[in-house]
Design a protein around this nucleic acid. Structure first.
Lengths: 242, 242
DNA sequence: CGACAACTTGACGGGCGTCAACCGGAGTGG
DNA sequence: CCACTCCGGTTGACGCCCGTCAAGTTGTCG
């Protein structure tokens, strides 16, 4: 196992979540030529239309994937935290159909697409773990379609918060009791299909309900059960990968 | 190559879209134990919470995948037509996180999950094609998040129509000039996050713009360019798999 | 202390939901 | 061959949720 807080540690941790990795698998992962880089906030890692030849592993910090409508409206389609592989889809899809951006200062590791692809077939456990990871990605997108399509503002924002907290706790980033949110209200709006103004009103309402306490961009979930109930949050769709 | 209009024909056709399938790959696909079944409209093929041990190939007719919020609101997350594999995600995710339902009478073929999984690794071309297919799935979900999150009703409905027409044309199901839509206005609403009433008003408006002509549930796209422009439709996200 | 990003709040309006009634075609049964 | 039923489409009235616009406030960083 690699050292804590190195890109390799997070890569193996992520892939082990699916279960079976053998000694040899882990050893081979260690031979991947990772190129580690520290980047600032709001760094565009991939832009829609690019033809990437590397995959991006997030080792520290936060990032998001987003699309833009032709009229310039921005929609965040996922948030990411340490340990997430940000663009496995580029193993098979040449053209990036969305953009990728950090939302805090971050550490990323670039992995040559060809190397990862080769490893996926030489070591089936690794291939299966990677594939499974992309399928969980898909499951989360489906939940987001439901979220923006059929939930009202309060439920929608609460759901996004619940998902984020659940995923963060799973990798040891804070707990529900005292939680630092890395994104601005505008970004919450971009993720939920709302305006930042309405996100603000909605957070105030959740605050008023006693579900959470706010202190600028620091949140404290006062009542996790209540927040989950408000959010209609059922973590089954995360397939225990969060 | 299998006979036209058999499940096997559509399976090989789908997988060939990614490029390289060898003789042996196609031969092995032919040995898969398909169990073909004709089903009626509104048949629930998989329900959220199921643990399926088979994958479902749609050989004729139309289907959709949908989720329901705890309050009972329904959100369709994708439409499917002949040749589509409806639940490859169950190769790796045990529990179904959404339901699967026909929207017309249909022919489906069930493939044992274990057989497909084995073939995916014995014949890497097949595995890669299947994986790639799931990634395109993901890309379409991302576009839907953008669609319901950031487009107004008219653009949203038009986009859904454009996507459906593009995918249907690709498998020889009608052309833009005269197009039979298999879904009701309520289903269009469930897919776009609108009510059936507002879908009706929106279709009327698109009709008024001269983008399409309606005659009950038969549509005729009068001006494909115009409809695409109204819809902000750029097929790049389909990754040429439509 | 000035500049700036992000949060906050209020006024106002519109897009879309809700409710309700009606229509029209397809299938069914006598 | 006609009446009945039912599903889905169509239309109008009304209202609310959330967007828009605009002005302020607060914290941070130089």
């Amino acid at each position: 196992m690699a050292e804590l807080d190195t890109p390799l540690f997070w890569l193996t941790r992520k892939l082990k979540l699916t279960g079976a990795l053998e000694e040899e698998d882990i050893k081979r992962l260690g031979t991947l030529p990772l190129r580690t880089e520290r980047v600032s906030r709001f760094r565009e890692l991939v832009r829609e239309g690019d033809i990437p030849d590397q995959c991006c592993l997030l080792a520290a910090g936060y990032a998001c994937r987003y699309k833009e409508s032709l009229r310039g409206a921005r929609q965040i389609v996922s948030f990411h935290l340490r340990g997430d592989l940000l663009d496995i889809q580029h193993l098979f899809l040449a053209r990036a159909d969305h953009s990728l951006q950090t939302i805090t200062p971050a550490t990323v590791a670039w992995i040559p697409k060809a190397e990862l692809l080769r490893l996926a077939w030489e070591r089936p456990n690794i291939g299966k773990a990677l594939w499974r990871d992309t399928l969980i990605d898909g499951s989360i997108f489906r939940e987001w379609v439901l979220n923006v399509g059929r939930r009202d503002a309060k439920t929608r924002v609460a759901h996004m918060l619940c998902e984020f907290v659940a995923r963060c706790e799973a990798v040891g980033l804070g707990s529900a009791e005292s939680f630092e949110f890395p994104m601005t209200q505008e970004q919450i709006g971009d993720a939920t299909g709302l305006t930042s103004v309405h996100v603000n009103r909605t957070l105030k309402a959740l605050d008023g309900d006693g579900a959470l306490l706010r202190n600028r961009n620091r949140f404290q979930v006062v009542n996790w059960e209540q927040l989950c109930a408000l959010a209609e949050f059922d973590p089954a769709y995360l397939h225990a990968a969060a």
